[in-house]
Design a protein around this nucleic acid. Structure first.
Lengths: 217, 217
DNA sequence: TATAATATTTAGACTAATCTAAAAAATAAT
DNA sequence: ATTATTTTTTAGATTAGTCTAAATATTATA
């Protein structure tokens, strides 16, 4: 059984390792957890004893299979709660992250399965991120961030990055929601800002914004 | 701000003091918290620094006004979550206590107010216990436990004690739910067991059971 | 390839919450 | 009113998670 803090570290490691595909360094984990490298070293020792990560001194951390499953279970809870907050309680999509950070640590499996059922077994959360099933299986679609695409591209928004509440408010304002069609009408070489069409409306967005919009390939 | 543990201590003190009407002794608090008296002494020192209780060495603990408000806020959250679990997710009333013990510590006030609204501002939880409002105001009705009443009594079940899951299963089986009419058809002097009529059905219940049924006076 | 810069780990200390064992106060019993 | 019993508190230790400062390893640079 992992403590709340251990769960948070494991989740961060999972995300930073891109779902367990690469190692994570002490300092980037410290940065992500808003803590000091020394604290991270202590924690990764604990997590490797619990066999959810492997760890080689000075060479970073990797998630084990067991660790992946546990991380995905926490992510499942987080995303189901976010869906509940928006779909059922009427929160805006920019208001749910912090609350879900707390709710994701409630233990009852029965609760989360009932919640899943109540919500109609949603495939994705309000930001378009896929919701793992009870066994920790996650379905991913091929996707790119919009900034990597050039003029003329046309596709569908799959998801948006959900970390920054102000960004989400802005994306909401321009209608950049999962499921909407988006077209790169023009791209400025100098700063990589672009003109996009979303529905029948046109917007100029900075590279900073386009990096946070994930679209079909 | 109280820690999770401090919140749990405060809630226990509030309950053991009958809503702040009497002092609580170290040992009974230790018993209620499944911990040792020494730990209790440490914690009540912390809680009195935070001014949610007053404490005089060797003479027990009393809740302050601020403490009452905080305790009632936790109780509000507990009871709203219990209502949600039963009403919305389809849990049985004997399955919700432990989960609500975790959920009651989620901090967002906005969450709990939205939940309250979603549930239709319920006045009582599934066991009949009153739900305090956002300001910590609680409406209590005059009530007695059934064991204190004699043959011939007739009234309405207001609430049942919710601590024991097996008791709740039994009460569910005999239909002893808040709102139902109940009549004491006979009472055995020897062991204070009684025959009760609930709806059109008749049951013999022990004193142990009757103590846990709260009825109108 | 030695040296400088950066990253990581160790050592030692702090707080919250807990414990056991011993001391002290309050209550009960003779 | 002493003594015995019970209750409560103190003293000192332990674990989880954190920190700073110092030491060590790795990587980059000249």
């Amino acid at each position: 059984m992992l403590s709340l803090t251990e769960e948070n570290y494991l989740k961060a490691i999972y995300h930073l390792s891109d779902g367990g595909t690469k190692s994570v360094l002490t300092n980037e984990l410290a940065e992500a957890m808003s803590t000091k490298a020394a604290s991270v070293t202590d924690m990764i020792k604990k997590l490797s004893v619990k066999e959810v990560i492997t760890y080689e001194k000075y060479y970073g951390v990797n998630v084990t299979t067991a660790g992946k499953t546990k991380a995905l279970h926490v992510i499942r809870k987080h995303r189901l709660w976010e869906t509940f907050l928006v779909q059922t309680l009427g929160f805006n999509w920019d208001e749910v992250h912090e609350v879900a950070e707390e709710l994701e640590h409630i233990h009852s499996i029965r609760l989360i399965d009932k919640l899943d059922e109540f919500l109609g077994f949603p495939k994705a959360d309000p930001h378009g991120d896929p919701i793992p099933d009870g066994k920790g299986k996650i379905s991913t679609r091929p996707q790119v961030s919009l900034d990597q695409l050039g003029e003329g591209y046309q596709g569908i928004i799959i998801a948006v990055k959900d970390s920054d509440s102000n960004l989400l408010k802005y994306l909401d304002k321009i209608g950049a929601k999962p499921g909407r069609k988006i077209k790169v009408a023009g791209k400025e070489e100098y700063d990589e800002s672009m003109e996009v069409h979303i529905g029948d409306k046109k917007f100029f967005i900075s590279k900073e914004v386009s990096k946070n919009i994930l679209v079909t390939q």
